[in-house]
Computed example of a mutant assay.
Amino acid sequence: MLFDLKEYENKKVHFIGIGGVSMSGLAAILLNSNIKVSGSDFKESENVKRLREKGAEIFFGHHKENITDQDIVVYTAAIREDNEELMQARAMGKITYDRAEFLGHIIQNFTNSIAVTGTHGKTSTTSMLSAVAMAADADPTILVGGNLPLIGGNYRIGDSDLFITEACEYKASFLRFPGKVALILNIEADHLDYYRDLSHILDTFREYLTVMPKDGTVVANADDPNMDYVLKDAKVKTLTFGIRKGELRAKNISYDKAGRAAFSVYREDAYLTDISLMVPGEFNIYNALGAIGASLSSGISLEAIRKGLEGYLGVDKRFQHLYTKNDVMVID
Rank of each mutant, 00 (worst) to 15 (best):
E44G: 06
I243G: 02
F102P: 02
E166W: 09
A115Y: 08
G152K: 06
L309N: 03
K180L: 06
G39I: 09
E101N: 14
G311F: 00
L162S: 05
Y194F: 13
G242M: 07
G118E: 08
S38G: 09
H191E: 08
H62P: 13
A172P: 04
Y312K: 00
S199R: 10
K232N: 10
T141E: 06
E46N: 14
Y286I: 11
D139A: 08
N10V: 03
Y8R: 03
Q320Y: 13
A304D: 13
S113D: 11
G20Q: 00
A182I: 11
T96A: 05
A189W: 00
R196I: 02
I300S: 02
L31H: 01
S276C: 14
H63V: 09
K317R: 14
D69V: 02
G20D: 01
N154L: 10
G314A: 02
A250R: 07
G308A: 04
L103H: 00
T217N: 02
A261P: 13
D233S: 07
L30I: 00
M212R: 10
R176W: 14
I151G: 11
I292A: 10
Q108S: 14
I275V: 15
G311Q: 01
V315T: 14
G25M: 01
N287A: 04
K94D: 15
N66H: 13
M87I: 04
G61I: 01
L198K: 15
E85D: 05
V74C: 09
I331L: 05
V279H: 03
S173E: 06
D193M: 14
D71M: 07
F319A: 00
A262L: 11
H14L: 06
N66I: 01
P280E: 12
I114K: 12
E268D: 15
N221A: 07
I253V: 13
I67M: 10
D233Y: 09
G17Q: 07
V116S: 12
L209P: 05
K232A: 12
V211Y: 15
F177L: 12
V218K: 01
K214A: 14
M134K: 09
A77F: 07
R90T: 10
S127W: 00
G290H: 11
V21W: 10
L209T: 08
A291S: 13
Y170S: 05
S130V: 11
Y266I: 00
R260V: 02
S295H: 01
V279K: 03
I305P: 04
A136E: 12
I114C: 05
I300Q: 02
I151N: 15
I114D: 08
Y208G: 01
S124Q: 05
L277N: 06
L183D: 08
G158R: 11
K54N: 14
K257V: 13
A291Y: 13
A270H: 15
E282K: 01
T324L: 03
E303N: 03
G19K: 05
V218Q: 00
S127C: 09
S124V: 11
L183P: 15
I151R: 09
